Simulated scan of single mutants.
Amino acid sequence: MRYAPGGGLTDAERAARERVRLDVVARFEAGWTTSAIATALRVSDRSVERW
């Protein structure tokens, strides 16, 4: 099965996802652990590691 460009998300949803990714980067650079970031943002540890 193929997904639409952008994973089927609207422009607003893609922008929100990108803001979360940038938040992950900022927290990682500030010294947060992967687990702490995942807990704070309510995402999986695996997602944090990929971002």
Rank of each mutant, 00 (worst) to 15 (best):
W32D: 14
V20M: 09
A4Y: 14
R46E: 13
V48D: 04
R27E: 01
R17Q: 08
E18R: 12
V25Q: 10
V48C: 03
W32C: 12
S47P: 00
A16K: 00
S44Q: 04
T34N: 10
D11K: 12
A16D: 07
E13S: 07
G8N: 08
G31I: 10
V43A: 04
E29G: 09
Y3T: 14
R14V: 02
A16V: 00
G8Q: 11
R2M: 15
E13R: 10
A40P: 11
P5R: 15
F28R: 12
R14W: 03
R27M: 07
G6Q: 09
T34C: 11
S35M: 05
S44C: 08
P5M: 08
I37T: 00
E13P: 00
D45K: 10
A16W: 03
T34K: 07
G6P: 07
I37D: 02
Y3K: 15
V43G: 00
R19T: 06
W51P: 01
W32A: 15
D11M: 06
L9G: 02
D11L: 10
R46W: 05
W32K: 11
R14G: 00
W32E: 14
T10Q: 05
G6S: 12
A38V: 07
A12E: 15
T10N: 06
F28L: 13
R27I: 02
W51K: 05
E29T: 14
R19D: 08
S35L: 06
T39N: 09
T39L: 08
R27L: 05
L41Q: 06
L22R: 09
Y3S: 13
